[in-house]
Computed example of a mutant assay.
Amino acid sequence: MRNPIRYSPEIEHPEEEEEQTTRLLCRALTEILDTTSGNYGHAVRAVHAKSHGLIEASFEILPDLPFELAQGLFAQPGSHPALIRISTNPGDLLPDSVSVPRGLALKILEVEGERLPGAEGRTQDFVMANAPAFAAPDAASFLRSLNRLARTTDQATWAKVALSAVLRGAEKALESVGGESALLKTMGGAPNVHPLGETYFSQTAFRHGGFVAKYQLVPVSGSLVRHRGEEIPVAGAQDALRERVAHDMTEGGVWEFRAQLCRDLETMPVEDPSVVWSEDESPFVTVARLTAPPQPGWSEARAQAVDDQRRFSVWTGLAAHRPLGAINRVRRETYKLSADYRAAFNRCPVQEPEKVSLP
């Protein structure tokens, strides 16, 4: 196995049009936000608007990690309060019969160290999805995907439900012959799997102290593993996922947080997150354990506390975990736009928490 690649600013290669792409992404997000806030009389996130799980946990960094893994946040063993938000990716609040990929945002508190530019508080965020690769290879492709999402935001819900059923069938047919389509899943063809049984990936690369890594969150307790691959019946149900997560988290759960070090910039590129890094070249290694005690996994009171008053961004955290690559660079302004819009429209400040205390 090759030695891990050392972090250097030179491993990134920004393109000239990224600034223009960022402006167009902000325009598309604003279109989504204007539409949904007008419909609801309340601003929700431009993407991942609907939460399905809001969970209090502890994040335990393991002792005796190898040098190349004991970096940044992971340099010192110890336990940190943490907050988990499980969601799905549209920017409108759809019934669960519109089946789309799952996302998981993790906020770790009481984190000390040099901050990323503009990163408030003492927190470290990781934003993940239940697929190892990002659907777009570059910022321009990401913009095209977001524009498609913006065009569907104000379409009739019944039409989205019908389309989702068609796309799920198409995706299952494709998988039956050994294929899959990120586009079909993103547009409503993802299987309606239980969020607590899924493995989540950072998809994009990050600085890992002196090195470069991607991250993974894997369910390991029996209370979570038994839901792996389980499809939840959602026909006619508005909030089936919330109901199942709320019920099943009364048993608690444990995940392992793993890091995959970059060992070859050609086969494990930083700029193209649509490329899956080979685990044969560099396996994921556990660096921390995330433990959630028994609790209600979702409630209206928790949603009011987290969905309205908290933000999650790859650009909230330590300089030692700087987001890398084009997708992460354009995320900086777009994440800020969404949080600032919600704060202004709802007249509710969005702040970094000092503690986790969910109702």
Rank of each mutant, 00 (worst) to 15 (best):
I61K: 07
P63Q: 08
D64Q: 14
L69M: 08
A75K: 15
E68T: 05
I55Y: 02
A70R: 13
A46N: 01
F74K: 01
L62H: 11
P63I: 07
I61E: 04
E60I: 02
P66F: 11
L69T: 00
H52D: 09
A57D: 12
P66S: 13
L69Q: 06
Q71R: 09
I61C: 08
A46Y: 04
H48V: 10
A75S: 15
A49D: 01
A70N: 10
L73Y: 05
L65G: 05
A49Y: 04
L62K: 14
L69R: 08
L65T: 02
E68W: 09
F74L: 11
A75C: 14
K50W: 00
L69H: 13
S51P: 04
I61A: 02
E68Q: 12
L54K: 00
Q71H: 08
A75Q: 15
H52V: 11
A70W: 08
G72S: 10
A57P: 14
F67N: 14
V47P: 01
E60Y: 04
E60A: 08
H52F: 14
G72M: 06
A70I: 12
I61Y: 06
F67S: 15
I55R: 04
A75H: 15
D64I: 09
S51H: 01
I55M: 04
S58N: 09
A49F: 03
F67P: 15
E56I: 02
V47T: 12
F59Y: 11
G72Q: 04
L62G: 09
H52A: 11
E56L: 06
L65M: 03
L62F: 11
F67L: 15
H48W: 12
D64W: 10
L54C: 00
H52T: 09
A46Q: 02
A49N: 01
E60H: 11
G53N: 05
L54I: 07
F67V: 12
V47D: 03
E60M: 06
K50S: 01
L65E: 00
L62V: 06
A57I: 00
F74P: 05
P63A: 09
L73A: 10
K50G: 00
F59K: 09
L69N: 07
L69I: 00
Q71G: 04
A70Y: 13
L65H: 01
H48S: 12
I61M: 05
I61H: 04
E56T: 02
L73T: 01
F59C: 06
A75W: 14
S51K: 01
E68L: 05
I55C: 01
E60V: 04
L69P: 07
Q71V: 08
L69D: 02
D64Y: 13
F74R: 05
H52E: 09
A46I: 03
H48T: 12
I55E: 03
G53W: 07
G53K: 06
F67W: 14
F74Y: 14
L65C: 03
E68K: 08
S51G: 04
